[in-house]
Nucleic acid binder design. Structure first.
Lengths: 217, 217, 217, 217
DNA sequence: TATGAATGAGCCTTCATTCAT
DNA sequence: AATGAATGAAGGCTCATTCAT
């Protein structure tokens, strides 16, 4: 009988997550959350006081997850650099595919509220020190050795994140447009391979005419 | 002095566009639109009757523009295929950069409402016949000749659109994260080059180990 | 070219009358009146200042018409009293049938606003002196002579007005209920005869058991 | 002390009824209803969602009551036919007098909205089979026997309903006009007798010159 | 006279939130 | 912990009315 307490609190949280990810903050009504959770409308305020509060709880968790995943995934291994990066990009893709809605949350709910942007940035701070700096050094030395194209670490990470986020977000659009990609899983697998292919080719050492990325001033 | 009439109607439209792009449909209050436009709240309804109506006006226009731009830009020229595609990708990037918010509108407001998805698809129908089919044939013959990597036309277009849209949407995030990219223009220029570089490399004929894209079943 | 001025003013008035009679004061929108009149919305205020004003103009006219008709119709002739009354009742019926909407106006727009009730009463004042008092004397003397049933003049007039108003107002209901009465004209003719039949019988001298109307205390 | 719950719901309903009867649907503001009920404005929507909904609840109930009353009251007894009808007419009068506003609702709110007309008609369907048909046979056989005037059952019912409804609706007008009728109760009692007198005389067998009602073609 | 544009008041409704139990 | 009832603050929209031309 002690399970109910902690339980309904969790149930509400999960219901809220689904609603928020589906309709965004403004588009979600607390009533709908309560309905989905199967609890009384007022109870939700008993536990979380305000809608904003409830949203922040979820948002914070998602942003943290997003940041940690980046750090975890890209934090080196013993593979050769290119393989390490491509492998990490693949894992990152899987992570986003397993967390649908997170990408949408990122794209829709962060820009309008500066506070949320800051919140996001907080969770990306570790990334700079732990991932980007060592990665840049590794990238440079590999480039110096002519084993791969020269590229700025931020740009590279951006390429990966950008490709992956977009692939996940755009998926419903494409499947509405061209119905010959089979089910979601199959389509995402295709895009995953395509993204990795892009990254791999981007990292391949320049042959003759392909240009190096411009580096930030 | 001529500030009235057709003018206020336009002013409202533009104010609405900005608000909608900033806060989404649900997050925008008609009051805010009126305030931004500096007109009476009721006037907005005088011209556009309902909020939905006002939104649709903007949305429809943006979607049409988006579709037409794709067709126009990618509709062949006499350049060699790879250059033609890279050039088109660059133009498409410029188009999105010149129409900020369009990308966000696409990502934010289409998924939740099926009717809007259909609206978007309508504007992409021409694309299939006029662009994708001829492009596929050209791509295949170039690939057969070994001049470029084999790739599905839809996948290629998706790559381009995806990279470009994301670059524009993500720009504010990156600039909040890393302040060493200078102003918006400069950053976008960097991303443009990077995207084109990616496309170019993706189209380059496979050397030894790089894999071909999987094609839809 | 001078006709327009006085003309549009009249056109608006007529359009207003139709709308008000159809939808009542609250249910009528000035826009609808303007549309029906085919004139600009603002013009209606140019001529009549306010909606209330416009309504009152019509209301006043109708009430006056109603009152005058009663006086005119029931103001004696040389016929025998019963025939005179029955004949007047018939004329009153015709008057109401020719002025559809007036009855509705009476029933719906007078009760809620005391000022309108007073307005109506003003137009009924003449009735008391010119019609009711002489009629009562005539009725009494006829009753004394045993030529007709004894009846209070107010009650009699009420009977007539009540029967006639209701017949006109109820007509649409009945024709919706029982479709075997043919067109409006035919149905109204039937009701007219029925009403006159009722009045005539009511005035006929009591045979044995029929009771006389109670008179006011 | 139990004032809440089911109670306020009822209080709102009653307040709404009074407002609607007084000002009609269009003329009633939900704010006024809330004020009269002494409850928060939003509470009214909590219980009944929309103004239309609230109105329909009342309207439907009144129309059903109206229809049922007609059936109940006129569904035969063992009295002689004339007495039976006159008695029923009296009961019908009492019913309307006890349900003030119902008559006004009928006259005011049904004509403009076809859907409401249909709603009313639904409740009158039983009347046709259960009351009108048997009544017509009885009326005809009595007329054949020369015991009463020949009359169409629909016309007769219409006479009764018409007289009664009008008496109740017109009462405030008359009392504003002639203040010598005492209080409402007394006036209505007078009208009740008058109406019954009319009905009775209408049913009495024709003496010499009185005409029979025309029957529908 | 006539009109398109503009305005303010107010209405219906929703929704997050709080209260009492 | 849980709930039905209650509330205040908006939000979208309409409408009568006025302004400027």
């Amino acid at each position: 009988m002690e399970t109910t307490g902690r339980n309904t609190e969790q149930i509400i949280l999960e219901a809220a997550e689904q609603e928020f990810l589906l309709h965004g903050f403004e588009g979600t009504k607390t009533t709908d959350i309560a309905n989905r959770a199967g609890v009384n409308h007022a109870l939700l305020h008993y536990y979380y006081r305000t809608k904003e509060n409830l949203f922040n709880r979820i948002f914070e968790q998602k942003m943290q997850l997003f940041g940690c995943a980046l750090v975890d995934i890209f934090n080196g291994s013993t593979l050769p650099l290119v393989e390490q990066i491509v492998c990490a990009a693949g894992k990152h893709f899987d992570f986003l595919a397993d967390n649908p809605g997170m990408s949408r949350l990122l794209l829709t709910e962060v820009l309008c509220k500066p506070s949320r942007m800051e919140q996001l940035m907080t969770h990306l701070d570790k990334l700079k020190e732990e991932v980007l700096q060592p990665m840049q050094e590794a990238l440079d030395s590999e480039a110096d050795a002519g084993h791969m194209a020269r590229i700025d670490a931020v740009m590279l990470l951006m390429n990966i994140v950008q490709l992956n986020i977009c692939a996940v977000v755009i998926q419903p659009y494409v499947q509405a447009y061209a119905d010959n990609f089979g089910e979601r899983r199959h389509f995402l697998a295709l895009r995953r391979e395509e993204n990795l292919c892009i990254i791999r080719k981007r990292l391949a050492p320049d042959s003759e005419e392909t240009k190096t990325t411009a580096t930030p001033s």
